[in-house]
Design a binder for these strands. Structure first.
Length: 307
DNA sequence: GCGACAG
DNA sequence: ATCTTGTCGC
């Protein structure tokens, strides 16, 4: 889905003489969590004359930033018959537009996540592990340029890489906390389909069940492909740390993992699908030669190299 | 005011 | 993730 074009069309609804806020556009997309992504999408607007990104300001009436400079934002606002004084919108509440026509695309995606989260299995379903794959994506400055998604397959016994795959494509779904799946999962499915050596376990850069709606990208891919999967994140998306356990809604959803005693900030690992917490941790332990487990680290290097 | 916020 | 156009809750 092209969330950029959808967002730009929302902003085009704001009438002359009126402004809106990053958060209001985010809510029109379906989730306040997208407010920062709205700022990023405004920043990446390919044509400031064709989409009035200058009409989006902070929720307190301050005008916020602008890629072409604050002065140019003020100039464009005044040309649009919006009064600005001391970097603030005059009569902000009176000229604030919030009557977007929208069908809330993020709400539909959330619904899909919640439906799929019921299918996640946390029991081990692995009779053997011959191979394990790692997945990651590297991005250029602008989502309108090609990014690179990479997958590597390792032999579980020798720990040698037996296959590498990359794909390049543009991405029109920005990063929004808790919606990472809809930015990156298509790449991973394509990569998986192209693999000659179908792995027994998938290790994915992102969370498994460590997610406020129970379905991070590793769980999504696991359920979609019906393969055991593990999520590996560098920071904690949600939940409370109790010892090394991550607890959310009184449930165990993942663990903080310290790859060595010198590590200050742990990684956060969680089962994706068809795997238990204990097996997840023991696989991660086996592959942590560095802070980041090898399959992810090698996929990351491959993606970054080819960006 | 400062931290939280998968990538 | 890369670079710097948020918002909310404590």
């Amino acid at each position: 889905m092209d969330l950029y074009e959808y967002t730009y069309n929302l902003v085009r609804q704001i009438p002359e003489g009126m402004v809106s806020s990053y958060g209001a556009v985010a809510l029109a997309l379906g989730d306040i969590r997208a407010s920062r992504a709205v700022g990023r999408m405004m920043n990446q607007n390919p044509n400031a004359d064709n989409m009035p990104c200058f009409k989006i300001v902070y929720s307190d009436g301050n005008i916020g930033g602008f890629g072409l400079g604050i002065d140019d934002k003020i100039r464009r606002l005044r040309l649009d018959n919006i009064e600005v004084y001391d970097n603030k919108i005059n009569n902000f509440e009176k000229v604030f537009f919030n009557d977007f026509k929208t069908d809330y695309p993020l709400k539909k995606l959330r619904k899909k996540q919640i439906e799929l989260s019921c299918k996640v299995k946390l029991e081990d379903s692995l009779d053997k592990i011959d191979t394990i794959a790692g997945f990651d994506v590297a991005y250029p400055q602008n989502d309108f340029d090609n990014c690179c998604a990479a997958c590597i397959v390792m032999d579980n016994k020798t720990k040698k890489v037996i296959e590498e795959k990359i794909i390049h494509d543009k991405n029109f779904f920005p990063y929004i906390p808790t919606y990472l799946t809809f930015r990156e999962a298509d790449f991973y499915q394509l990569l998986y389909e192209q693999l000659e050596n179908k792995p027994d376990v998938l290790m994915i850069d992102g969370n498994g069940i460590l997610h406020p709606f129970g379905l991070g990208i590793a769980s999504f891919i696991g359920v979609k492909m019906n393969i055991p999967s593990i999520g590996v994140a560098k920071s904690k998306l949600c939940g409370k740390l109790e010892g090394n356990k991550v607890i959310f809604d009184n449930k165990l959803i993942g663990s903080a993992f310290f790859s060595s005693k010198y590590i200050k900030n742990p990684i956060f690992v969680s089962p994706g699908h068809k795997i238990s917490h204990d097996t997840t941790i023991s696989i991660i332990d086996e592959y942590c030669y560095y802070k980041i487990p090898e399959p992810i680290r090698k996929a990351h290097l491959l993606a970054t190299k080819n960006i």
